[in-house]
Amino acid sequence: MGRVADILDGINRGLALGLRWLAVAMVMVQFAIVVGRYVFGVNSIAVQESVLYLHATLFMLAAGYTLLVDKHVRVDVFYARASPGARRRIDIFGHAVLLLPSMAALLYWSWPSVRNSWRILEGPISVGGIEAVFLMKSLIPAFCILVILQSLAILIRLLRPGARA
Protein backbone atom coordinates (compact mmCIF):
# COMPACT_ATOMS: atom_id res chain seq x y z
CA MET A 1 0.00 0.00 0.00
CA GLY A 2 2.96 2.31 0.55
CA ARG A 3 3.71 2.05 -3.17
CA VAL A 4 0.15 3.21 -3.99
CA ALA A 5 0.58 6.19 -1.67
CA ASP A 6 3.88 7.04 -3.39
CA ILE A 7 2.19 6.93 -6.81
CA LEU A 8 -0.62 9.20 -5.60
CA ASP A 9 1.97 11.60 -4.15
CA GLY A 10 3.80 11.53 -7.47
CA ILE A 11 0.72 12.77 -9.32
CA ASN A 12 0.54 15.94 -7.25
CA ARG A 13 4.33 16.40 -7.16
CA GLY A 14 4.57 16.13 -10.93
CA LEU A 15 1.67 18.49 -11.48
CA ALA A 16 3.18 21.04 -9.09
CA LEU A 17 6.41 21.12 -11.11
CA GLY A 18 4.49 22.48 -14.09
CA LEU A 19 2.02 24.60 -12.16
CA ARG A 20 4.68 26.73 -10.51
CA TRP A 21 5.33 28.31 -13.89
CA LEU A 22 1.74 29.58 -13.95
CA ALA A 23 2.63 31.96 -11.12
CA VAL A 24 5.43 33.39 -13.23
CA ALA A 25 3.15 33.65 -16.27
CA MET A 26 0.47 35.34 -14.18
CA VAL A 27 2.91 38.01 -12.95
CA MET A 28 4.20 38.60 -16.47
CA VAL A 29 0.71 38.92 -17.95
CA GLN A 30 -0.40 41.26 -15.17
CA PHE A 31 2.70 43.38 -15.72
CA ALA A 32 1.96 43.50 -19.47
CA ILE A 33 -1.62 44.58 -18.71
CA VAL A 34 -0.42 47.46 -16.52
CA VAL A 35 2.20 48.60 -19.03
CA GLY A 36 -0.26 48.27 -21.91
CA ARG A 37 -2.95 50.24 -20.15
CA TYR A 38 -0.93 53.03 -18.54
CA VAL A 39 1.93 53.42 -21.01
CA PHE A 40 0.31 52.60 -24.35
CA GLY A 41 -3.39 53.13 -23.60
CA VAL A 42 -4.23 49.59 -24.78
CA ASN A 43 -6.62 47.31 -22.94
CA SER A 44 -7.98 43.82 -23.56
CA ILE A 45 -10.73 42.11 -21.57
CA ALA A 46 -9.49 38.69 -22.74
CA VAL A 47 -5.97 39.38 -21.50
CA GLN A 48 -7.35 40.60 -18.17
CA GLU A 49 -9.44 37.44 -17.87
CA SER A 50 -6.38 35.35 -18.63
CA VAL A 51 -4.97 36.37 -15.24
CA LEU A 52 -8.17 35.05 -13.64
CA TYR A 53 -7.84 31.78 -15.57
CA LEU A 54 -4.17 31.41 -14.60
CA HIS A 55 -4.92 32.12 -10.95
CA ALA A 56 -7.86 29.71 -10.87
CA THR A 57 -5.79 26.99 -12.52
CA LEU A 58 -2.87 27.49 -10.15
CA PHE A 59 -5.04 27.57 -7.04
CA MET A 60 -7.33 24.68 -7.92
CA LEU A 61 -4.75 22.27 -9.31
CA ALA A 62 -2.10 22.94 -6.65
CA ALA A 63 -4.42 22.20 -3.71
CA GLY A 64 -3.46 18.51 -3.67
CA TYR A 65 0.22 19.41 -3.57
CA THR A 66 -0.44 21.89 -0.75
CA LEU A 67 -2.03 19.05 1.20
CA LEU A 68 0.93 16.78 0.36
CA VAL A 69 3.50 19.19 1.77
CA ASP A 70 1.26 20.00 4.78
CA LYS A 71 1.07 23.73 4.02
CA HIS A 72 -2.71 23.96 4.14
CA VAL A 73 -4.53 25.94 6.80
CA ARG A 74 -5.24 24.07 10.00
CA VAL A 75 -8.18 25.20 12.08
CA ASP A 76 -7.57 22.79 14.92
CA VAL A 77 -6.71 24.56 18.16
CA PHE A 78 -5.82 21.29 19.91
CA TYR A 79 -3.51 19.88 17.22
CA ALA A 80 -0.38 21.85 18.14
CA ARG A 81 -0.35 20.59 21.73
CA ALA A 82 -1.54 17.06 20.98
CA SER A 83 0.58 13.97 21.35
CA PRO A 84 1.69 12.16 18.17
CA GLY A 85 -1.02 9.52 18.71
CA ALA A 86 -3.71 12.16 19.15
CA ARG A 87 -2.47 14.01 16.04
CA ARG A 88 -2.70 10.78 14.08
CA ARG A 89 -6.31 10.25 15.25
CA ILE A 90 -7.20 13.88 14.44
CA ASP A 91 -5.68 13.49 10.95
CA ILE A 92 -7.51 10.21 10.32
CA PHE A 93 -10.79 11.74 11.46
CA GLY A 94 -10.21 14.90 9.41
CA HIS A 95 -9.47 13.01 6.21
CA ALA A 96 -12.02 10.21 6.56
CA VAL A 97 -14.94 12.11 8.06
CA LEU A 98 -14.47 15.70 6.91
CA LEU A 99 -12.23 16.08 3.86
CA LEU A 100 -13.10 13.05 1.72
CA PRO A 101 -16.88 13.36 2.14
CA SER A 102 -16.81 17.12 1.48
CA MET A 103 -14.73 16.66 -1.68
CA ALA A 104 -17.05 13.86 -2.82
CA ALA A 105 -20.07 16.10 -2.19
CA LEU A 106 -18.49 19.03 -4.06
CA LEU A 107 -17.63 16.73 -6.96
CA TYR A 108 -21.16 15.30 -7.04
CA TRP A 109 -22.99 18.62 -6.79
CA SER A 110 -20.75 20.54 -9.18
CA TRP A 111 -20.71 17.91 -11.91
CA PRO A 112 -24.09 18.87 -13.50
CA SER A 113 -22.91 22.48 -13.88
CA VAL A 114 -19.60 21.40 -15.39
CA ARG A 115 -21.32 18.92 -17.72
CA ASN A 116 -23.83 21.55 -18.85
CA SER A 117 -21.06 24.10 -19.37
CA TRP A 118 -19.28 21.66 -21.70
CA ARG A 119 -22.53 20.78 -23.45
CA ILE A 120 -23.12 24.41 -24.44
CA LEU A 121 -19.40 25.34 -24.58
CA GLU A 122 -20.13 28.16 -22.17
CA GLY A 123 -18.74 31.45 -23.41
CA PRO A 124 -16.90 34.34 -21.81
CA ILE A 125 -17.52 35.86 -18.39
CA SER A 126 -17.46 39.36 -19.92
CA VAL A 127 -18.10 40.64 -23.42
CA GLY A 128 -14.82 40.32 -25.27
CA GLY A 129 -13.45 37.82 -22.77
CA ILE A 130 -12.06 34.33 -23.16
CA GLU A 131 -14.64 32.00 -24.64
CA ALA A 132 -13.81 29.08 -22.38
CA VAL A 133 -15.69 29.25 -19.09
CA PHE A 134 -16.31 25.53 -19.55
CA LEU A 135 -12.56 24.98 -19.11
CA MET A 136 -12.45 27.00 -15.91
CA LYS A 137 -15.45 25.12 -14.50
CA SER A 138 -13.60 21.88 -15.27
CA LEU A 139 -11.10 22.88 -12.61
CA ILE A 140 -13.69 22.10 -9.92
CA PRO A 141 -13.82 18.33 -10.47
CA ALA A 142 -10.06 18.28 -11.14
CA PHE A 143 -9.53 20.02 -7.78
CA CYS A 144 -11.76 17.49 -6.02
CA ILE A 145 -10.04 14.51 -7.61
CA LEU A 146 -6.53 15.75 -6.85
CA VAL A 147 -7.39 16.49 -3.21
CA ILE A 148 -9.16 13.12 -2.86
CA LEU A 149 -6.13 11.30 -4.26
CA GLN A 150 -3.77 13.11 -1.90
CA SER A 151 -6.06 12.54 1.06
CA LEU A 152 -6.15 8.82 0.25
CA ALA A 153 -2.34 8.74 0.09
CA ILE A 154 -2.15 10.39 3.50
CA LEU A 155 -4.76 8.03 4.94
CA ILE A 156 -2.87 5.00 3.60
CA ARG A 157 0.21 6.15 5.46
CA LEU A 158 -1.71 7.04 8.63
CA LEU A 159 -3.44 3.66 8.76
CA ARG A 160 -0.25 1.61 8.40
CA PRO A 161 0.84 -0.18 11.56
CA GLY A 162 3.32 2.00 13.45
CA ALA A 163 2.37 5.17 11.54
CA ARG A 164 3.06 8.54 13.16
CA ALA A 165 1.49 11.97 12.71
Rank of each mutant, 00 (worst) to 15 (best):
Ala63Met: 09
Ile7Asp: 08
Ile7Arg: 11
Ala32Asp: 08
Met26Asp: 05
Arg164Gln: 12
Gly36Leu: 02
Arg119Val: 09
Pro161His: 12
Leu100Gly: 01
Cys144Pro: 06
Val39Ala: 15
Leu121Ser: 15
Ile33Ala: 06
Val51Gln: 09
Trp118Ile: 08
Ser102Asp: 04
Ser126Tyr: 14
Val51Leu: 09
Val114Lys: 05
Pro124Thr: 06
Ala105Glu: 06
Ile90Lys: 03
Leu98Gly: 08
Phe31Ile: 11
Arg3Glu: 13
Ser110Asp: 02
Val75Trp: 08
Ile145Tyr: 02
Val42Met: 10
Leu107Asp: 06
Val35Ala: 13
Gly18His: 04
Arg89Trp: 12
Val29Ile: 11
Val24Trp: 11
Val97Glu: 09
Gly36Pro: 02
Leu15Ser: 07
Met136His: 10
Leu121Ala: 15
Ile7Gly: 15
Tyr53Val: 12
Ile125Cys: 07
Glu122Leu: 10
Leu8Met: 02
Ala5Gln: 00
Lys137Met: 09
Arg37Glu: 08
Lys71Pro: 09
Leu58Asn: 11
Ala63Phe: 04
His72Arg: 01
Asp70Arg: 11
Val133Phe: 14
Thr66Asn: 05
Gly94Ser: 14
Gly64Arg: 00
Leu155Lys: 01
Ile11Val: 15
Val42His: 13
Gly64His: 00
Ile140Phe: 02
Phe31Tyr: 13
Ser138Tyr: 03
